[in-house]
Computed example of a mutant assay.
Amino acid sequence: MLHGVLNIYKEKGYTSHDVVAKLRRIVGQKKIGHTGTLDPDAVGVLPVCLGKATKVCDMLTDKDKTYEAVLLLGKVTDTQDSSGRILAESDIQNLEEQEVQKAVCSFAGEYDQIPPMYSALKVNGKKLYELARNGQEVERKPRRVIIHKIRILKMELPRVHMEVTCSKGTYIRTLCHDIGQSLGCGGIMESLVRTRVERFAIEDSIRLEEAEELMQAGKLTERMIPVDQMFEGYVKLYLKTEAAKAVRNGNIFWPGDILWMGVEAEETFIRPYRDREKVRVYDEERNFIAVYEYREEKKCFQIVRMFFDGRE
């Protein structure tokens, strides 16, 4: 079984689930998961987790993301993008670029966003898009999202090309709709490219066709990020034999159980740790076991997430 994270370029027309299904066929294993839904019409970065790395799917879903979107002003649709039914159209001839610039930039920071009806969020056990397709509209609670950065790349009214870096749970379709509403003319998302998720950038992504070629050549693992490298910001701790055995069962360990530490496992000095500081834990043979965190009150390390498979 393969273990690691692949930076896949999701092409237009595929759902995120389609990508997972195709990779399962290419790789020949079921244990694969994606890290956040992209609409079928959207393209770009979709990190896909294989094997043990499926345990970090939720961690990547929580990361900030960067998009390039085209906002088309003067239209409103039921899906908030170009695939939907047109509900209203407005003349924007009198709209000035300076006014648009101001409106776009005003969305930087935190704001309460109402999720669109055409989304996978559930209300009373039913997905919103299923209700929308049946002609139903239900009340949705606003959700606080963060637009870390928004800038205009090019303006050719009625189109505005934007780059947006935002928190998890942000709908770019809805952001486009909201900008249009603030201008009084309406707006929809005409196209969307996800260019980055955490460390995964679009220029490093591979298409499914390339993934299949690499798999057949026995080189797919060369394009995968190993599981432990997903936590490269955490210090490495190598444990004594008995402590490593205990950790494989999820037990706590103490600073005195540490054999050595550091990126190259050459540091023997055991430094103090901050409360809740997370670390990567390995055995003497440098096999990655788990992520732990230091608990100051008990002066010990407790498990955060286990990556050791008892069948190994």
Rank of each mutant, 00 (worst) to 15 (best):
V76S: 07
T66Q: 13
L72E: 11
E89K: 15
T79S: 09
D64E: 14
L46E: 02
D58C: 09
I86Q: 02
G51R: 08
L71Q: 01
D64I: 15
M59Y: 14
A88F: 07
A53W: 00
G51H: 00
G44R: 00
S82R: 10
D41R: 06
Q98P: 01
P47M: 08
I92Y: 02
V100P: 12
S83M: 12
P40T: 12
V76L: 08
L95F: 02
K55H: 14
D58K: 14
G44Q: 03
T77D: 01
G74R: 03
A69D: 09
L95H: 11
K55I: 00
A42I: 06
D81Q: 11
L50H: 04
S90E: 11
P47L: 07
V100I: 12
G44H: 10
D91G: 10
V56K: 00
E68T: 08
K55E: 12
L73H: 00
D81T: 07
L87R: 01
L72C: 11
K75H: 06
K55G: 10
D91M: 10
T77S: 15
L95Y: 02
V43P: 09
K63R: 11
E96W: 08
T77M: 03
Q93T: 12
A88H: 08
D58H: 13
Y67S: 02
A53Y: 00
M59F: 15
S82D: 13
E99Y: 06
V43H: 02
L87N: 12
L60N: 01
Q80R: 03
V100N: 09
